[in-house]
Design a protein around this nucleic acid. Structure first.
Lengths: 210, 210
DNA sequence: ACTCCTCTCTATTGATCTATAGAATGGTAG
DNA sequence: CTACCATTCTATAGATCAATAGAGAGGAGT
C-alpha cells in the first residue's frame, strides 16, 4: 500500500521533518540526508514513507495550503460586514503561523518546484482561495461599505502580500505577536478599504530625475 | 585581476543570465550549465567571469539591493510631507521591477543561501534601508501627520511586504501596470497611516471555534 | 611577424545526491 | 515457536554538478 495513503504517527513526524528542512534550506538546497538526520534514521529509510523527494514536497505543500480555502469559504457565507470578513480572513491567514510556519513557508517558497501535475493540484486550491477573497472585497465595494474606486484584484493581492510577508519574518521580530500582527494588519486594510477622504500627496517625485 | 572587479560588457550579460536563471529555477535548482546555455557558451567558460557559483549569486543580489538604501536616503532628506515620502518610497521600491525584476526576485528569495560573509554584506544594506523607512514613518507619527497609535515597525514591515509581494507576481497579472500598483499601494498605505476614525469590525470570529 | 590579452574550449576530477534492492530487526498474534 | 508485519538497515548504482587545468582562437597593438 502506498505510504502516503495512510497517515500514521511516524508519517506525521516525517512530514514535520521534511517541512522543517525544506523551510530552512529550500527544496533543492535540502538533501534527503538532511531530513533523515532530523529523524535520526538513515537516508534510504525515508523511502519507506515517500516515493520521492518531490512527493514529500507535495505533501508538505498540501498541508501548508489546504485549510485556507476551506476557512475562506466559511467566512464568505457569514452574514456580517465586509470589514468583519476581512478581519476574519486575515486572522485565519495568519493563525497557521503559530503551529505550522514551516509548512506555510514551504508552500509559499517551494511550491513552484513541484512537478506540473502536483503544482496544478496545489494551484487549484490557491485559485479558489484568491477568488473567495476577491469576491468578499467586491461585495464590500458593491454594498457601499468599501470605496467604489477600490480595485478588488489589487486589494486581494495586497491582503495576500501583507499576510504572506508575515510568514517570512514572524518569529524573528522581537515582541511581535500574532495577535498584534493580526490586529494591526486588519486595521491597516480596513482603513484603506473603507470610504473616506482621499489622501493628499504627490506621487511623482518631481524634484528627482526620472 | 579578478573579473568581478571590472564590469565590462560581457560581464553584464553574464550577470543578467545568472539573474534570469536563478530567478526561474532558484539558486540551488539552477546549474552552472543552465547559465552557460543562456549565453551559448560551455559550462566551464563561466569560471572566467566568476570564482564560484556563490560569487555569481552575491553579484546578482548586490545589483538587486544596492539602489534601495541610496534612494531612501535621498527621500528622507527632503522637506516634504511624510505622505509624500511614503509615496516616493513605494515608487522607488517598485520601479526596479520594470527593468531588473530578475535581480529583485533573486535578492528576495535567494539571498539567504549566500555564505555568511556575503550575506552579512547584503544584510547591512537591507538594515540601512529598513531603518530609513522606519524613521520616515516615525517622523510622520511624531509630526502629527500619521496616527499616534501607528506601530512604526509594523508599518515598515507592511510597506516592505506589500512592495516585495509585487515582485512575485508583477508581469503575470494581466493589465496591472507598475503605475497602477504604485498608485494603489501608496493610496492604501497613506490611507492606513493617516489620522482618521477607527474602523469598526469584530476581530475575534466569535462564532467559530478557537 | 610577434606578443599580449580576452575569451572560450576540451577533458576530467571528485563530491554529492536520489533512488533501488534486498537483508536485518523487533514486536505481536496465532 | 512460528509467521507476519512495520520499520530500519547496508550497499550500491547511476546521474548530476561545481570546479580545475591547460590548450586554442582571434583580435589589437607594435
Amino acid at each position: 500500500m502506498l505510504p502516503a495513503a495512510k497517515p500514521k504517527r511516524r508519517h506525521v513526524e516525517m512530514l514535520a521533518a521534511a517541512a522543517k528542512v525544506f523551510a530552512r534550506r529550500g527544496y533543492h538546497g535540502a538533501s534527503t540526508q538532511d531530513i533523515a538526520d532530523v529523524l535520526g534514521i538513515r537516508q534510504a529509510s525515508l523511502y519507506y514513507y515517500f516515493h520521492s523527494k518531490e512527493a514529500a514536497l507535495e505533501a508538505v505543500c498540501t498541508v501548508g495550503v489546504e485549510d485556507y480555502a476551506k476557512h475562506a469559504q466559511a467566512i464568505a457565507g457569514q452574514r456580517v460586514s465586509a470589514a468583519d470578513k476581512v478581519a476574519q480572513l486575515v486572522f485565519r491567514h495568519l493563525a497557521p503561523l503559530a503551529e505550522r510556519q514551516d509548512y506555510t513557508i514551504v508552500f509559499l517558497r517551494e511550491r513552484r518546484f513541484l512537478p506540473p501535475p502536483a503544482r496544478e493540484r496545489i494551484r487549484a486550491i490557491e485559485r479558489r482561495y484568491e477568488r473567495l477573497i476577491e469576491r468578499i472585497i467586491r461585495q464590500g465595494i458593491d454594498g457601499g461599505e468599501f470605496r467604489a474606486d477600490l480595485d478588488a484584484r489589487l486589494a486581494t493581492l495586497a491582503l495576500l502580500g501583507l499576510g504572506n510577508s508575515a510568514a517570512a519574518w514572524y518569529g524573528r521580530e522581537p515582541g511581535v505577536t500574532l495577535e498584534r500582527i493580526t490586529r494591526d494588519y486588519v486595521d491597516l486594510l480596513v482603513r484603506a478599504f473603507r470610504k473616506g477622504a482621499a489622501p493628499v500627496y504627490s506621487l511623482e517625485p518631481s524634484r528627482r530625475r526620472a
